[in-house]
Amino acid sequence: VPLLTGVSAGSMIAAATAAGVAPEPDGMDVVLTAARRTRELSKKSLLPTFDALTPGYSLIDAVEGTFREAIVKSLGGTLPSQSQQQNRDYDYTLESLYDIDPQLFQRRFPMGSLRIGLTDKRALLSTFPPPSPLSSLPTAYRYVDSYRNVEDVVAACMLSSYIPGVTGPLLGDNISDKLLEAFNIGGSEKDEEAGNDAMKRAGRQLREMTRLGLVKDGKTGLPSAQSETETGIERSSQDEEDDSTQYWDGGIADVFPTFDDNTIIVSPISGMYSNPTICPSMQQPNEVENQSLDNSSVSYLLRSYVPSLPATFRHCPKSSLGLNMGNARAVKDMILSSDDEQLYQRFKEGYDDTTRFLNERGLT
């Protein structure tokens, strides 16, 4: 089994792959369930076209439960009962409740085999001027590559996917409650359906993992706590108490995580990469045909108002991203309402592009 690494959505795919979750149907069920929940909640708001960007709505809360369920089941464990899960005080860190064979867990997640990328919020925000999103591997990049139990894996994936105000709460429940009220979603309804506590739970877990040296500096590979001490960064106990969200989405610091030049990058955005890459081809054969059917889409607007968009722009030394209609449509589908058919279409594209990648290299 190759070494796996991932950030954001990619971290969940990498972790699920390591755990042995079958992509179809179990992996897709996680995605489809999260998408259905966002659509249901979105119908109750005044912004019916937005899913992922509905203010105050937390995608990581929508996906955490089904993601944990898929991982635990694939490891032969048992899940907490419905009543336990509905109890807000239920302690998910009670690993013994999952009844997972520790040796099996260690075989699926051996030390160093799965690297989940994170962004250190303090390092990111303390830099002035802020690091350009075009730079790669800025000093804020952190990663985890050893895990004690399923909750370590789930927590790392949740924070690796956490962008404040986009995929998770903005500044805590108070702000998001106000936003939800402003957009006609009752606070109590939000509490019942989403809970909005995945970020806090993951934050507590990562704080403990950091203390144990499981979170490492992206550049040095040293435990991040030790690295901070050596670089003179002081953390007060008050900081640690208040700072439940020290880590944000790993893609902020490093969109395309790599171990080395031989790492195959998987990206749903087409472009040119220095590493071998599985990604959509630069021009989809049916692109022109689809554009005429897609008059209200972002891609149509882009084509209408900026006809001279360059094909690519330099993202970082290891990649140039494609500014084409296919990518515009992909981004639109990811942040706006996506029905099951669209999501399965994305699944099929990933499968087909991988088949093409393997065929071109004689690897099938």
């Binding site: 992509p23 031989n262 998987v266 990811m334 399965y344 393997l358």
Partner: peptide, 30 residues
Amino acid sequence: LPSIGFSGAGFLGCYHVGVSACLQRHGWLG
């Protein structure tokens, strides 16, 4: 086998799931 890095670029990572499915089918992933 080379290492494999799944990028961010979107929370609804169905594309990644499709890639994972194909690699699994061809024995690249366990």
